[in-house]
Each structure stands twice: as structure tokens, then as C-alpha cells.
Design a protein around this nucleic acid. Structure first.
Lengths: 366, 366
DNA sequence: GACTTGGTTGAATCGGATG
DNA sequence: CCATCCGATTCAACCAAGT
């Protein structure tokens, strides 16, 4: 796995900002070489004329030329092409994040599904400090939508469940994220004090995405790099990035920004892992090592059932024989059972889960 | 307006649940006769196998035949047809709400745009008590998405800004709504104790939609009526409803439910009206009524600019003449200006906004 | 009656390694 | 490719029964 990453990485322009059209540049890169894509494409905002606040200050709206599309057709074609190029670049187990607002996200989501991407979640970025609706004609547009999708239905995508749960104070992470918009010191400004990019995303958003759905060393591509939030956070977190940006003024800002970023300590990049990632220990080892004697009795957690350990690492209860899981499932009439947490043994009059013994063995293995 | 509603209402099957296929029934109803459509179509969930909780109990999933579609193509065709029929039914200033999850909402949103609907907001229903992700493989699917769209870009849709603001404790209502899922006493059960419908929506959701985007007496159509949450809330709130439901078992439950609903008192239905809906008061009236004398000077809020009132209700400042709004805009170099809040007059040495005078007139009008 | 405890449930695209 | 087996995994709200 590591070797494969390295070998394909060798031919990749890592930690660089490539100049040019997103689709062309993506098509020039080697197929199946990227772990994750984060894409913040033009939104196709259909603002009619300028928007003004009640106090007459002008809202610096997204009105740059690159954001104008004369019809849904043009936007759909553009969307399909960049998504196609992106999908080609992904490794078999790769995934994509794409962000949008109601102006474009429905078209983007539909094209994404049409191309074979498999939606895993949509995530709502709930802005803690959105711009109010000055005219009082609609709801405050207080969120944007992110679509998280794997390359296809079969892909074994990366999902650091425990790390995300830790980020959320021990409760599993939900599909709605409350994060502030990017302003204050984080918001990049030109020399004239204007914002350097109209839609700079907050680093907190990319932090959660990269911690949650990539591993250190993974290659993250951003085809609409802008001022480089993806690159900056990737560098901090010890991921490799590839940026593509057409406009020189954005590339310049991004390069300066990323050069100033310091990578976190390696220890800080280590995230909580799930039990699934730990080495497998067969129950029979507990018997071989003498931690449990053949003939010793195990008791279910609630104390209602019992079974006898046999020398080959199977259990027997009445006429039922089999693994700790099989016997537990049978006794409970359940479709499955985790024997490690179901069974206990007696020591000094107390019932101890057998999983304690497995943890002892795992500790010795390190 | 009222007459028109009544005349078209006369030929409409109001406050009834129509049996049959949504598209067929909609096409049999008169064109341009409905103020609002709320649609909760099948989501096309593509569930593979069974799902069990960590305690081995089985999740009662949506496996009904009405949610099964063979392909995206079939689902898209279905979506396009019901949306087309729905749009035909809407009055020129009508609007639609459609709810979905990531399985279907992107396709629905794109078709909706393709048909000429004009998206006003998408609204995220953040569930306070969603079902967790039992396998730890994704984010908790904690929200559903509602799309609010007018019949076309030009439609003067209904939006009770002040009422929604009041519902939200004086703060402008945002595009993310935190509401609990429908359970407890509100959840309708069959005689055997099973849920009567797998996807019953909470009344709080419909309450907010109907208070916010309809007026008393409006006709609200729900083409996927189910157990009739839309009808129940419409009746409470003094709106007329039309339900369409294919399955008899759901119709029966809905009829019984709605019969038991009591309409709120008329007084309770009176919602805060937005300033926009308040009677318009021409500035000239202030002059006609002698509240301001011709020749009197007005001062801008910051005191830097001044202008003189003329007998015809226009202002003059240096060589600029025009309405309170036009002169204010010109003096500020702004494209627009709300003259009512921009200009003040002197009384007893103090600067008083001219809007105070407008409010006096409005108070007298009631 | 107040409080605690245990059981149930909700629109869900919910494994992975080994042989 | 398929079959088999291991074994990891849940939050908030409501309700009924017990203390």
C-alpha cells in the first residue's frame, strides 16, 4: 500500500500549484493516482445586478467573469467534464468532496450520481455567522452543502470514525457541521484591503474533511484551488496536495500563504483508531497461553448463560459447540454476537470480560 | 384576489383526499388554481440488506413497494412528470416545497430548475433526534433537505417575513431549522402498534412552512399525502387543502386524523405582517396633512446633508430634485436609498426620523 | 407523586478478511 | 467469483414499570 502510493506519487507534481484549466490539467495527470479530491467549483450565482445593504454599502458579491454561465446547459456540461476528469484521477478507493449552494449543488449532485460516484453523505455546513437577508424576502441563506462520494459503490473509502467522534466530544459526528465563515485574520486580503478571493473557505472545514477522510501521506487534489485553503490545511496535516488554479493572482496569494504554513508535529497527526484497525487475536491463543484453562466456565454478561472452554479454543454449551461468537449468538437467538464482549470469566469472585485478556495480548505485541 | 380565489375554489375539491395516482389526479384538476404545493415524494432509497443495531435488534426500514425504482432514468421520469403537473396547477404567484434526502434531492432539484421553477432557498431540516449510524461507517444522517421554489422567476411569492421572525424570537429565520422527528403521541400507529406510515413528517415542519409561505384561505395541495400531516396542519391554520394519496390504508388514517383536528381561533391565525404588507404612505401625505411644511428643511441621519421640502412632496437640494429616495441616493452617491430612514426633521431641537410621521399615519388608518 | 431504570425506535443507499 | 466466519457498532426521546 505504502509502496504503491510512493511509486505513483513519484510521477505526480506533489505540493505544487499547477497553472491552467482544471479539466485540461487533470486530464494530463496519471490515472488512479489521487486519494481524495476537494472541489469548490464556481457557483453559477444568478444575482441580478448589484446587491446593496440597507445602509447602501455595496455587497462585494461574486460577480467575476469566471462565475457567469449563460445557461444550465453550459454549466452542466462544465460540471460533467470536470467530474469525469476528477473520477479518472481517483484511486479505486478514492473519494470526492464537492461543495455548493442551491444555485449549483442540485446539478452537481445529479451529474455526480450519473457518472457512477456513490454518495456517502451530504453534509450541511451551517454557518454560525452568515450574511443576513437584507431585503427580508427570503430565509437567511445560512448554509452550504457538501457532497461526499466514493468513486463507486464498491470502494472502500477512508473514514476515521473514532477521530471524528473525538472531535465531537465523544458523540459520533453528524451530517450537519456548525462552523464560522472565513473572516478575521484568516481571511486573505490584497494590498488594497479587499478580500483576495470572493469565496475563501475556512480552514476548519478542510481540517475536518482531511482528518476525517484521509490518512497522513495521502494525495489530495483541489481542481479549483483559489487561495489554497486545501493546500494549507493539507500541509499542516501531513497530507500531500496538488492544486490547480487558472488565475495567476490567486496562485500567487496561495503560494505565499502555503509557504508560511508549518506542518504539525508527527505525534499530533496520530488520530484515534477504531478497534477494527488493531491486530486480530484468535480466542484460542488465550487457551494456549494458559490465560483460560480448558474446562473453565464462561458466563454471559447478564449471568444467565454459561459455556465451557475446550482445548481447541471452542466453547460448548449443552449441545451447542463452536466459536465464542457462534455459541453466544445461538444462546441469545441473535443473528450475530461479539463473543469478546459477551463472555466473562470468574477471577477472585468477580466476573471479568474476556476482552481484557485480548487487550493484554495486544499490549505485549507492541 | 379574494374573488378570484373563491371562484376557482368553487371548482376545486377542497379539504378532501383524492384517491389515485398523483400525476393523473393533478392533471385532472384546473390549471392555475393552487397557492402552494408541499410534496414529500418517494426518496428512492436503495437499501441492500438488513441493518441491525448494536443490540442486535433489527431496524424497521423503508422497504415499501412505492419507494422502489429500477433506475435513475425511471426515477427522473417520474420526478419530471409530477413536477410538471404540479407546476401547471400553481397560480402565477404560487410556490412549491419539496423535501428529500441525498438519495433523490439532487435529481429533484435539477428537474425543478429545468422546468422553470425558481429556487428561493433550500432549507435544511436538522433533526434533533436522528437515527445514529450503527456501523460507524458514515456521518449520522441527521438532516433532510427542503427546496422552496416559486413557479418562475417573476412570481410574487408569499413570504411572511415578520411572522417567521417572531417564530424565531425576533431574529430573522435562517435556512436551517432544528426540529425533532415525528414520534411519541404525534406518531400515528396501526391497531397492531406498528407505525401507520414509515415516513410521517412532524407537524412542526408543516406549521412553519404554512405560516411562513401561505395566508389564511390559501389552497395547499399535497400530491403525496400519506397520513395527512399537510391536511391536518392546514386545517388548524385555516388554510384549504387538497390531498392526493394512492393507498387506501393511508387515506383512511388521514381522514380520521383530520376529522379530529380543531381549527385555531381566527385571532391566533393573525400573524405579524411585514412592513412591506403595511399600507403604503406617500411622502406627500405628510405635507398635505401639515406634518411637514413646504420649505421646511430635512437633514440626513448623520447631519451632513440637507434638503428642502416642496409642496408636491418632492425634495430639493442644490440642483437636485426628486423623491425622498432619489435625492438621498444622489447625495450619497448610492444607487438606492430608503428616504424614510435617511431623512430627519427638527422638532424641539431634536432630529426626528420622518418615518415616525409615517407610523403616525398608519396608526390612524387602523 | 417524583424519580430511576430499562426497553424501544427513527427515510439507512451502514464490513472485511479469509479461503 | 462466492461462501464462511469474525466481530465491530448507537443518540435522543419517549414510555412503561419499578423504587
Amino acid at each position: 500500500m505504502k509502496t504503491k502510493t510512493r511509486s505513483s506519487a513519484a510521477s505526480l507534481p506533489l505540493n505544487q500549484i499547477l497553472a491552467g484549466d482544471s479539466i485540461d490539467v487533470m486530464n494530463s495527470l496519471p490515472e488512479g493516482s489521487v486519494d481524495l479530491i476537494f472541489a469548490d467549483p464556481p457557483y453559477n450565482l444568478q444575482l441580478r445586478g448589484d446587491l446593496h445593504r440597507p445602509d447602501n454599502s455595496k455587497v462585494d458579491a461574486v460577480d467575476d467573469a469566471w462565475d457567469q454561465f449563460d445557461s444550465f446547459k453550459v454549466y452542466d456540461d462544465f460540471t460533467r467534464e470536470w467530474l469525469k476528469a476528477a473520477r479518472r484521477l481517483l484511486k479505486p478507493n478514492g473519494a470526492i468532496w464537492a461543495i455548493g449552494s442551491y444555485h449549483n449543488v442540485y446539478r452537481m449532485g445529479a451529474e455526480l450520481q450519473n457518472l457512477g460516484f456513490w454518495i456517502l453523505n451530504d453534509v450541511v455546513w451551517r454557518k454560525s455567522n452568515p450574511m443576513p437577508n437584507f431585503r427580508g424576502k427570503r430565509f437567511t441563506n445560512a448554509h452550504e452543502t457538501l457532497i461526499w462520494a466514493s468513486k463507486n459503490e464498491a470502494a472502500k473509502y477512508t473514514f476515521n470514525y473514532e477521530a471524528l467522534k473525538s472531535l465531537n466530544e465523544g458523540i459520533q459526528m453528524r451530517s450537519d457541521w456548525v462552523l464560522p465563515i472565513c473572516n478575521g485574520g484568516e481571511r486573505l486580503k490584497n494590498e488594497d484591503g479587499d478580500k483576495a478571493h470572493p469565496t475563501q473557505k475556512p480552514e476548519s472545514l478542510l481540517h475536518r474533511i482531511l482528518v476525517g477522510t484521509t490518512n497522513p501521506g495521502d494525495v489530495v487534489l483541489d481542481p479549483f484551488f483559489g487561495t489554497g485553503t486545501t493546500g494549507a490545511v493539507a500541509k499542516m496535516l501531513g497530507r500531500e496536495f496538488i492544486g490547480i488554479e487558472r488565475e495567476e493572482k490567486y496562485r500567487k496569494v496561495a503560494e505565499k500563504r502555503i509557504a508560511a504554513v508549518r506542518k504539525f508535529d508527527k505525534d499530533a497527526l496520530h488520530v484515534s483508531t477504531s478497534k477494527r484497525a488493531e491486530p486480530r487475536v484468535p480466542f484460542g491463543q488465550l487457551v494456549e497461553r494458559g490465560m483460560l484453562r480448558p474446562g473453565e466456565e464462561l458466563y454471559s454478561m447478564n449471568g444467565r448463560k454459561k459455556a465451557k472452554v475446550r482445548a481447541d479454543g471452542t466453547l460448548v454449551s449443552n449441545d451447542v459447540k463452536g466459536s465464542i461468537h457462534q455459541v453466544g449468538a445461538h444462546l441469545e437467538g441473535a443473528p450475530s454476537c461479539n463473543g469478546w464482549t459477551y463472555w466473562t470469566f470468574k477471577r477472585d469472585g468477580k466476573n471479568v470480560p474476556i476482552d481484557v485478556l485480548r487487550q493484554q495480548i495486544r499490549a505485549e505485541m507492541q
